[in-house]
Write a protein that binds this DNA or RNA. Structure first.
Length: 196
DNA sequence: TGTTGGATCAACT
DNA sequence: GTTGATCCAACAC
């Protein structure tokens, strides 16, 4: 880990969601668990913004499930989907405005052997190219919902890499809101889940 | 109280 | 290209 690594502060997350999403590409997700350190470089994210975005969980209004999206930016939102998978989101914007960035893909950096154990892989597989796979490799579940990302357990940091190329596209796996190009990814990474 | 479908993935044909 | 695995939140009744 570079000595230049800098944890992202609250102010980073309180900005407009599309800016946060774009800026998250090339940043590092860090998770300290059981005395071990897991980290991965983010290469694919999607923005979900407000009650007027039909694909956003907040489109149905405030519920117990999406409550954390209504809080201030810089907290984790982990939800369960399809009976088998968890997805990790980064809450953005100021308190009262529901928005978040879904982490869809990342390149494993630290603790890869732990990720393999968490995944219980049956064969050689990319561990973190997909939102469900990433949570499985990091062992993130509902217990990691609503964590303060300015704390010391789960956070994001800037390791001052050279800037990545960034492309945008429609979001993946949704039926509504496909007109918006709110997905951002690094086209040079092999850990992007869907090439388009 | 019951039904339904989802911001997924892997293993098939 | 299609499907099975498998849970829970949201909504209808």
């Amino acid at each position: 880990m570079s000595s230049k690594a800098k944890k992202l502060k609250r102010g980073f997350y309180l900005r407009p969601t599309l800016e946060v999403a774009r800026d998250l590409i090339g940043k590092y997700l860090v998770y300290r668990t059981g005395g071990r350190l897991l980290s991965a470089r983010l290469v694919e994210v999607e923005a979900y913004i407000g009650e007027d975005d039909p694909a956003c969980h907040a489109a149905v209004g405030r519920t117990p499930r999406n409550e954390v999206m209504y809080g201030p930016g810089g907290f984790s939102y982990v939800y369960f989907i399809y009976g088998m998978y968890y997805c990790l989101n980064i809450v953005t914007e100021v308190k009262g405005f529901p928005a978040a960035v879904l982490i869809r893909g990342a390149e494993p950096v630290d603790g890869i052997e732990i990720m393999n154990l968490n995944y219980g892989r049956t064969r050689q597989v990319r561990l973190t190219n997909g939102p469900g796979k990433l949570c499985k490799a990091f062992n993130l579940t509902r217990k990691q919902n609503n964590l303060d990302l300015t704390g010391s357990n789960l956070y994001l940091e800037d390791r001052h890499d050279r800037a990545a190329r960034i492309k945008s596209s429609a979001r993946i796996g949704i039926k509504k809101g496909v007109d918006k190009n709110w997905r951002f990814f690094d086209p040079d990474s092999s850990y992007v889940s869907v090439k388009r």
